[in-house]
Simulated assay, not measured.
Amino acid sequence: MRALLVVNPAATTTSARTRDVLIHALASEMKLEAVTTEYRGHARDLAREAAEAEDIDLVVALGGDGTVNEVVNGLLHEGPAPEALPGLAVVPGGSTNVFARALGLPNHPVEATGAILHALHERSERTVGLGLASGTRGSEDESVPSRWFTFNAGLGFDAGVVGRVEQKRERGKRSTHALYVRQLLRQFVDEPSRRAGRITLERTGEDPIEDLVLSIVSNTNPWTYLGNKPLYASPGASFDTGLDVLGLSRLSTAAVTKYGTQLLRSSPERGPQGRHAVSLHDLSEFTLHSKVPLPFQMDGDHLGLRTSVTFTGVRRALRVIV
C-alpha cells in the first residue's frame, strides 16, 4: 500500500518528536510519503494531487479538524467516488478533533495511530456521508466555490464565535476550550439581533422558518466537545443520514441560560428543545438566507460573511479507515 501523510506542523497537541514517532510507525506498515504543510490550503492541494494520482491508496491527515477539512476537500475536488478515490485516515492532532472522535477513534494521536494500523490490518473501513455548502443560485454569493464539511457548519451566532477565536489565535493565543467560552460570552454581549434573528431557512415543499438568530448544521454527533464532554446539538445526526439543523429564534439572557443548560446536559437521546428552538432531521437540501451578511463557519473554520448558503447532504461520499 502506498500512502500520503499530510502533517500540520502547527497541530496543537503533538510535538515534533511525537510526529516523528507516528511517521515511523506508519512507515513500518506501508510505503509512506510524509509532507508537512506550509500554508493555508496546502493540505487541500496535496490531497487533490493524491486523488489525481493513480498509485495512492490512502491519505492520512495528521492535524486538527481544519487540516482534515482541507484534505477532504482536496480528495473530493472532482466529486465523490468512494471506490475510485484514496481512502482517508485521521490522526487527531488538534484541540478538539470532532471528526476523528465521531468516527470512534481515540483522541490521543499515538493511540489513534495504533487503531488505524489495526483497522488497515483487518481491512476495516466505512463510507460516510458529508455535507456540501454552495453559494445559492441567484444570490450575491452564487460565485462562492462549493465546499465540503465533515461534521458541522453554521451561519450566524456560532460562526461569530469561531471568527473571534481565529482572531485571537492570529494574535498568538492558544486554541483552548477556555478561549472558546470567553469568546462565546463576548459574542453574546455584542450580538445585535439576540431577540429577533435575521436568518430564514427554506426547503422545497415546506413553509420557510424565519427570524433565526442561530443555525447549526450537523452532519454527525456530537456537535462539538467541551473538554472531554460531548455536546449534542442534534442527537439524531449521523454519517449515514442527511443533514440535521438546530435553529434558535431568540438569544436573550433567559434563552441562553435555558438552551445552554440543555446543551451541557444533552445526550445521544435528547438535545435542546423549547418554544424558540427548531430541530430538523435528515434533510437532503435546504437554504439559509440572511437579511444582512453574517459570519459563516464550516468544521470550525471561519469563512467570512455570507447572505445565502445552500446545503446538501451527500450520502456515501468518502471511505474512511476506522
Rank of each mutant, 00 (worst) to 15 (best):
D65G: 09
H177E: 09
H77Q: 05
V128C: 11
V110A: 10
L120I: 06
P86R: 01
A100R: 04
L184Q: 00
V144C: 05
V161Q: 14
G94N: 08
V181Q: 05
R101H: 11
E140N: 06
V59H: 00
L132E: 04
G114R: 15
A84F: 00
A115F: 06
A81W: 00
G104N: 11
F149L: 09
R123Q: 14
S134K: 13
E166F: 12
L130V: 09
L179V: 13
A178E: 15
V189Y: 08
V165T: 10
T127S: 07
Q187G: 15
P145N: 04
P80Q: 02
L155G: 06
A61P: 01
E78D: 15
R101D: 13
D141L: 03
P106K: 03
R147C: 07
T150A: 13
G131Y: 07
P80F: 02
T136M: 07
L85I: 01
L105K: 02
A112I: 05
Y180R: 08
P109K: 04
A115C: 15
G74P: 02
R101E: 12
L132V: 06
V181M: 10
P86E: 02
A153W: 03
L62E: 04
A100P: 12
L58M: 05
S139E: 13
K173I: 06
L62Q: 03
G114Y: 11
N152S: 11
L58C: 03
E54Y: 01
A133M: 15
E54N: 13
T127R: 08
N107M: 13
V72M: 03
A81T: 01
I116E: 00
L130S: 08
Y180M: 10
R174A: 08
A84L: 07
S175R: 13
S124D: 12
I56V: 14
H77E: 12
T113D: 13
L155W: 01
E142L: 08
D190T: 10
R174Y: 06
F151Y: 14
H108Q: 14
G114F: 12
V72W: 00
N97H: 05
K173Q: 14
R137H: 15
S143G: 07
R174C: 10
S146E: 08
T96E: 06
S95Q: 04
P80T: 07
S175W: 08
V181D: 03
R186S: 12
G172M: 12
G66N: 06
H77L: 01
E70Q: 04
V72D: 00
V110T: 14
G156I: 10
H77C: 10
A100D: 06
